[in-house]
């Protein structure tokens, strides 16, 4: 299937600063793509290039087959965009604002009412439809911003940090809404919150310092981290009667030398007398059963043994921190005035 969004070797510089460098990815129809990166990684810059707000310094962006540089109006017609700060006119009422957004997107007058009603319903704004935008709470404003992005029923929805500044309930609602919107629609959302990606996205692009670090499904990325680095096992033991501190020291040493095992980090003793040990080991069943054998041979009770799951968070941290340790002067922060 033809991808709806094609980002082809796109770079963006602000003066001498390279905010995004040589970024390429595609998004197929109906997918929710999470755009993940630490603050200042170039997320907002990329969103702005995707929506035609700013042109890339080099490379090109295609939306629904239209080149944003050559046919900007046709391409932008396919896009609904919620910037980091919802672009609201505080003096308008919700309905008037959405009507303006609909007209601006070229919805003819006869269809406008229906389009606005649909957006209001989708974003659960029924109670607020007559209210003045400037007096709405943060959560409502975000919803109005989302309704504005949806009002012309675009094929592509670009959301820049849609849950930033919301309370947990609102975050949950927004995520559910995003999931509901996916399907026919293609969604690109940027975030620096990991669980968001795991919950809402089909695929993740991780960027750091303006460069693409990884691109995969959330599950595959997590698995990749598990395979790449031995995160290991968590062993919970209890000292059998007659086993003292010396024996415990022996056990730690023995676990460290078990087949496939590396470092051992003993946790503090619990009041009940059990202890948790974190053992770095290969992510294989053999390695874990070897650990169990060691514990039993030394006369300790094995209360639990489980695989320490590598989370997306670890992938993220690995990919982004190793990068920031690089001696590289190029910061990727957008210029101050660009984000009002």
């Amino acid at each position: 299937m033809d991808p709806v969004i094609v980002v082809d070797r796109v770079s963006r510089r602000y003066g001498t600063t390279l905010a995004v460098r040589d970024l390429s990815f595609t998004v197929p129809r109906g997918q929710v793509l999470g755009f993940l990166g630490p603050n200042g990684a170039g997320k907002t810059t990329t969103m702005r290039m995707l929506t035609g707000f700013m042109p890339p310094s080099s490379g090109r962006v295609l939306v629904a087959g239209h080149d944003l540089a050559e046919a900007p109006v046709e391409a932008r017609r396919q896009i609904g965009y919620l910037p980091e700060n919802p672009p609201l006119y505080p003096e308008m009422d919700v309905r008037g604002y959405l009507e303006f957004a609909a007209r601006l997107r070229g919805i003819p007058r006869p269809q406008m009412r229906a389009a606005v009603d649909r957006a209001i319903e989708r974003c659960a704004l029924g109670e607020a439809r007559e209210r003045i935008v400037g007096r709405l709470s943060r959560g409502y404003r975000q919803r109005v911003g989302l309704a504005q992005a949806l009002v012309h029923d675009p094929a592509v929805l670009v959301l820049d940090e849609p849950t930033a500044g919301l309370d947990p309930k609102q975050i949950h609602e927004t995520r559910r809404l995003v999931r509901d919107l996916a399907g026919e629609r293609t969604v690109v959302l940027s975030t620096h919150i990991l669980p968001e990606v795991e919950v809402t996205c089909d695929r993740v692009v991780i960027i750091s310092r303006g460069r693409l670090r990884a691109e995969d499904t959330p599950e595959a990325l997590a698995a990749r981290a598990g395979a790449a680095r031995t995160v290991g096992a968590i062993v919970e033991i209890e000292a059998a009667p007659g086993r003292g501190a010396d024996d415990f020291g022996d056990l730690v040493a023995a676990l460290g030398t078990a087949p496939g095992a590396g470092g051992v980090t003993p946790g503090p003793a619990t009041p009940e007398g059990s202890r948790v040990l974190r053992v770095e080991t290969e992510a294989s069943a053999e390695a874990r059963s070897a650990l169990a054998r060691v514990v039993l041979e030394r006369g300790f009770l094995l209360l639990g043994l489980r695989r320490a799951e590598a989370s997306l968070e670890q992938v993220f941290l690995e990919l982004t921190t190793e990068e920031s340790a690089e001696p590289n002067a190029d910061a990727a922060a957008p210029p101050p005035e660009a984000s009002p």
């Binding site: 932008r76 910037p83 601006l104």
Partner: peptide
């Protein structure tokens, strides 16, 4: 940002 990303 709304105006500049609208199809106008």
């Amino acid at each position: 940002e709304l105006l500049l990303t609208a199809p106008v």
